[in-house]
Amino acid sequence: MRSIEDIEVGGKTVLVRVDFNVPVDAQQRITDDNRIRATLPTIQALVDKGAKVVLMSHMGKPKGKRVPELSLAPAAQRLGELLGQDVALAPDCIGDEVAPLVDGLAPGGVLLLENLRFHDGETTNDPEFSRELARWGEIYVDDAFGVAHRAHASVVGVTEHIDTCVAGLLLKKEVDYLGTALDNPARPFVCIVGGAKVSSKLGILENLMGRVDRFIVGGAMANTFLKAQGYNVGASLVEDDLLDTARDIMERAKAAGVSFYLPVDGILGTGPQGKLASGVCPFQDIPDGEMVLDIGPATHTLFAEVLKDAKTVVWNGPMGAFENQAFSQGSVGLTHFVAGLEAMTIVGGGDTDALVHLCKMTHKFSFISTGGGSFLEFMEGKKLPALQVLQG
């Protein structure tokens, strides 16, 4: 897969798909600019080489309607601050109003198109909409791993109308790190899987079964595995329809020689919004009316022992309801432990990303993926539409 490092861009108009789908508050102020910062190396490289840079992104789910609250104006302003130069916002992403703004770009200039999803054609991969987007570039660059799993016009359709299509530095970095973890990991290779539901992580467990040396399973999804073994999990969240599947996964792991670790104790509460924890309890003795909302101290010790000699760690999903301080210590403690490992440590998924940022430990991890759904699908071994079109 070629990247911007492999082509000449000086003086060319370069159309770049970025992911500026950032959170904003009621005053339209960006509350987390990490997605903008992540693509700065690509944008800066194009600017430094004298390209005329036209950026396009979506924001939220306006469902084909112009929603003022979902304008990319805050992103244009923030990007300008980070680049140290003016970044104009086009009034739309297609149409005659945009043409003079693109034509007027000087080498090193940057223009951001308005929200792609103000048009239905983006999500339906409409050929005419794709053709209209392609008007704005002699070269197409995809630097939006967060939507790499979407067969949308700005990801797939546009590539049919531009001859030179390459990856940006962020997209290339994502593929290099995640690909290495899957295909050539340093061992022991440990995968940490957490979050609420087994159903959302089945693909990862299935695809990594023959690749990893150890699985660590935490979060509410661990309850399903524990119940499948015959333990009472009280009022905890459980997917009863997946108990047989959970048993099958554990049996397959055993047959494949993959160690499979579950929590041995948990922090209890009456619900994830509760202000106080009820206490710590071994998993053999969970009371009927209580919920397991975090891993306990014995589990942290166990998981730390499993991880201490790891050379590759891939982590998706927190260990509990970490957004509530009463049930955050397991996830926070594990974050600090993994951050201190002498290993390739890769984090993916929105909740896990948020957890690492909450702990202010981003600089301690080898790589933090910018993808949510795309990270999951890559780890599941699925073909991502964005990569397919760039790899030919």
Rank of each mutant, 00 (worst) to 15 (best):
N316H: 02
G317T: 08
G317V: 04
P318C: 02
P318N: 00
M319S: 06
G320D: 01
A321T: 06
F322C: 06
F322S: 02
F322T: 03
F322Y: 14
E323Y: 10
N324L: 07
N324C: 02
Q325G: 15
Q325F: 10
Q325K: 15
Q325H: 12
A326P: 08
A326T: 13
F327T: 06
F327Q: 03
S328R: 10
S328H: 08
Q329A: 14
Q329D: 01
G330V: 04
S331H: 08
S331L: 04
V332C: 00
V332M: 14
V332T: 07
G333T: 11
G333V: 11
G333D: 06
L334I: 14
L334M: 15
L334A: 04
T335H: 02
T335L: 01
H336P: 06
F337H: 14
V338L: 09
A339I: 07
G340W: 13
G340Y: 14
L341Y: 11
L341G: 11
L341P: 13
L341H: 04
L341W: 09
E342H: 15
E342I: 12
A343H: 11
A343Q: 13
A343T: 14
M344P: 01
M344H: 07
T345K: 13
T345P: 09
I346C: 03
I346H: 05
I346A: 06
I346R: 05
I346G: 04
V347G: 07
V347Q: 06
V347F: 07
G348F: 03
G348C: 06
G349R: 04
G349Y: 06
G350H: 09
G350F: 11
G350D: 08
G350L: 08
D351C: 12
D351S: 13
T352H: 11
T352D: 10
T352V: 14
A354S: 15
L355G: 12
L355K: 02
L355Y: 08
V356G: 03
V356L: 01
V356S: 04
H357Y: 06
H357G: 00
H357E: 07
H357S: 04
C359T: 08
C359M: 06
C359S: 11
K360H: 13
K360C: 01
M361A: 15
M361L: 03
M361E: 15
